[in-house]
Nucleic acid binder design. Structure first.
Lengths: 331, 331
DNA sequence: GCGCTTGATTAGAGCGCTCCAAAGCTTGTA
DNA sequence: TACAAGCTTTGGAGCGCTCTAATCAAGCGC
């Protein structure tokens, strides 16, 4: 910066003004500075800037697993929105291990970020509130009652209900849910499934499972050996659904002719023509965008009261659901 | 920091020493400082630290698309290795658009990172060399001849050859490659396919396609309408393979009974029991780890000469490949 | 008791920038 | 010509830390 100032024949302060795009610099000087900066290949040192200005242009993002396409998509959206607003992301992973997440969070905070976004964290609420005392915090796929914390969630209850309504409309009455257990969002989906079933006077069947391919297959095998396979399945997520479909087909049952299956998440899997899975979509891009917007509102001091976004999911009907088989329909 | 020093009854410099874990501090003072820091919830300001010490603990990572599971996996590995080494990642996306990538790269460099990792960038070589003059640069899935730049690549040629060898061993002689066009890594795979085929005295058939589900299906339809469907397909990647399989099955052909298909990348797709795709695996975790190791060697000044890693892929044989159909074998 | 070494501690400068208050330069006007 | 009013420009302090060199206390041999 010193060098640029010398080369352009101005003071350091003027260089600073130009680099920040201040309007109160004469066109002549501005050009001289820009030219000098270009010749010297100078670009301002972000860290020094944020130290001096006591403002930060970095946003901390903690994700528990990037290999999970859901979070990868959200982070992608986050990054797009952040860079459009002139912020940079510092990212780390916590792996859904409380101790690792705490240290990841600590490491993010030591950058004195403008704000922090936590994707489906498992750290204790107290840790989140402590973080919120240092900078705005937005939670994705996790709820909080703290007033300094905003949350953005998929309405898993509504999503599961959507699946049930769809199947009910197709004539299905015996519907089972393959439950995701402790996985992110599973509790809400389970709740939504139960509620929607009861609303129709149906008995909700919930089978313990996990959000994986193998677990979906296992759950179906259990249902088969128990001897009363439902006519439709609401899987915990798409992977689970695919596993379930495999197990069904391996046992001579056709999807959707014999059994209908609905997934959840609308991952890239679901749209493959090979699977063409009916599934619940929860726009991950919007999730990311909303989270970033909420954070920036806080950062800019435009809002102090917490906001709780609950995204409305939608159903994407493809080829794994069909009207209930005739025999069933008659019974 | 001032406060901590006051509370512990020591100087700022001593606090600094303790926070950096210097051994030349008496146990008594160390404890007093740690206690004070804890009570005040103090943790050092990373940016101020790196400004003062003229060292950086941030690593810049530019990825073109996180939604691509391949890169998400590499980033995950990068993060794991980085945090183990005490570094933090600042991440942004370039979307394979040269202009966006350049500005993303500029933004990374303005943090004065210890080093930068570029995942399959499309920026001109000159831009990469310019970056390399500022800090060590490691390229993943892209080659470079610049001496300040290390590269880590999957050996796509070897991978495609692996697929051909496998199919050849199963008796296949008419094998086509569904080419990925300009996609990352496609050129090497194409080359490897051609070379391996010629090594067996076979005519390499290359069909233009893309690394997507839909393109794979389209390529198969073209082969079908041309009237000479090969007995085996080496797809550009897993998505492409899945699309191809769909199109084959929709046309009454069985995989692998009639046609064998090999994918590439061993994505989570491939391992689904529903697909159980034979595919080429190029350990993404190792790719990430190697890239980070290479970068850290430079950062620590342990090495000045460039390194060119070429990762050996391996073949994962699942259920989409089988011996050539008998009729073919006789002909 | 003296200088001397050794290890623990600290003052102070400085990293690259921003920001404030003050200074300099134009104008326009009396 | 003088001077206020506006704009542009600048010096200097300071952001939170590290690092060097200096200081200090304690222990040692003579």
């Amino acid at each position: 910066m010193e060098d640029v100032a010398a080369r352009a024949g101005v003071s350091r302060a003027l260089v600073s003004l130009v680099m920040r795009g201040s309007p109160q610099v004469s066109a002549q000087r501005r050009e001289a500075v820009l030219k000098a900066a270009d010749e010297l290949g100078y670009s301002p040192h972000v860290m020094a800037r944020s130290l001096a200005s006591r403002t930060s242009t970095v946003l901390g993002v903690m994700v528990n697993d990037l290999r999970n396409a859901f979070f990868a998509d959200v982070v992608e959206a986050l990054d797009a929105a952040a860079s459009a607003a002139g912020f940079d992301l510092i990212l780390n992973t916590g792996g859904r291990v409380p101790s690792r997440e705490s240290s990841a969070l600590r490491s993010l905070l030591s950058f004195r970020p403008a704000g922090v976004i936590l994707l489906s964290p498992v750290v204790p609420a107290a840790a989140i509130e402590a973080a919120a005392r240092q900078c705005p915090v937005v939670l994705v796929s996790r709820t909080s009652r703290a007033s300094g914390v905003d949350t953005v969630n998929d309405d898993g209850e509504a999503g599961a209900a959507l699946a049930v309504e769809h199947l009910f409309g197709l004539g299905h009455r015996r519907i089972a849910h393959l439950d995701g257990g402790a996985a992110a969002g599973a509790a809400a989906r389970r709740r939504g499934f139960r509620r929607a079933m009861r609303a129709h006077g149906l008995e909700p069947v919930v089978v313990a499972s996990e959000h994986t391919d193998a677990a979906g297959a296992k759950a179906v095998l259990e249902l088969l050996s128990a001897g009363d396979l439902p006519t439709a399945l609401v899987a915990g997520n798409d992977f689970n659904a695919v596993g379930a479909i495999s197990a069904l087909e391996e046992n001579g049952l056709r999807v959707p002719a014999d059994v209908s299956v609905v997934g959840y998440d609308n991952t890239s899997l679901a749209s493959l023509r090979h699977l063409s899975l009916t599934t619940v979509d929860q726009s991950r891009a919007e999730l990311g965008r909303l989270a970033l917007d909420a954070l920036l509102e806080r950062v800019r001091g435009e809002r102090a009261s917490p906001v709780r976004h609950l995204l409305h999911p939608s159903l994407v009907v493809r080829s794994t659901t069909a009207p209930v088989p005739v025999r069933e329909g008659k019974s």
